[in-house]
Design a protein around this nucleic acid. Structure first.
Lengths: 154, 154
DNA sequence: CCGAATGGTTCGCAGTACGAACCAGGCTGT
DNA sequence: ACAGCCTGGTTCGTACTGCGAACCATTCGG
């Protein structure tokens, strides 16, 4: 842990600030697609597969009443749909509508493009190293699949 | 850019997921201190120095009416104070109250402690590498000082 | 000294997030 | 069979967030 005397940023501040950066990109990208960050996040999660309300709460780390509201608003925008789960009458499956999938793909692609610009000052090897180290961090901390890798879609 | 076929996470997804992780830590830490993430962020920014409302908007990337509201609520909680700027009657300087500083120090310390735990699976050299690479990313993207380094306080 | 720019506030609105209370459908033990 | 529990979701009330438009006062430039 400890204080670094070498004039370089410490790992904690670097993590917090890069998170701030990513959030800003996410927010700006969402805005340009006419949705909120949260709705954008929901669309990205649903790109992989449909989820029940409870599962969505676990993935997005939201209380269940929050999920109800988010899905309500996104459904009202025509991007998402609640379907009956035939196995369990009370349960619901939330999935993308066709328009939702189209928007999700576009939003995801554009957001990826912009996030990818952030480490533009690193060379290929450094980017690989960053990806590997950060990848291990998120793996060790069991981050839910809130954002797909490029080969995880569909 | 391109798809990675080697089974490891790509840099974009790693950045987004680590941001999600940091946000979650920030939110949980704030909650335990009885404040919101945004108010926690405000306190952390003000730990370094007082700011005018406009400056706060630039640092936090908020519209000015949003800053007014945030400072209102935080002031109502007794953590922050508006002071007249003697040089310019219309301008205002927002600074921490004594209680605000106490809370900010504690919140900052605890949040640092938790963020620091995130890369626990990396060894010292790897953490240094991660800090250096991420540090260059945030530097190149001109992130405002939303979170101090350990030796930047006061 | 007038007009423009600057620094902030107010207002109205939509969205976010939570907990508590609630409800219906499923599950279990007897 | 059915009483009681658990689970999956919704509703409701509340506080906070974030924005743009309109506004107001002060300062600055010509």
């Amino acid at each position: 842990m400890g204080i670094r005397g070498d004039g370089r940023i410490d790992v904690v501040a670097a993590l917090v600030r890069s998170a701030f950066l990513v959030d800003a990109v996410y927010a700006e990208s969402s805005r340009e697609f006419g949705i909120t960050s949260q709705q954008g996040q929901l669309l990205c999660v649903l790109m992989a597969q449909p989820y029940g309300m409870g599962e969505l709460g676990a993935v997005l780390r939201l209380a269940k009443s929050s999920v109800t509201g988010l899905v309500d608003r996104t459904e009202r925008n025509g991007l998402v749909r609640r379907e009956q789960n035939p196995e369990d009458t009370r349960a619901v499956q939330v999935s993308l509508t066709p328009e939702g999938r189209t928007l999700a793909e576009a939003f995801y692609a554009e957001t990826c493009r912009r996030i990818d610009l952030l480490p533009a000052s690193l060379d290929a090897a450094e980017r690989d190293t960053l990806a590997e180290l950060l990848g291990r961090v998120v793996l060790a901390n069991e981050v839910p699949v809130v954002f797909l890798e490029r080969d995880e879609r569909h």
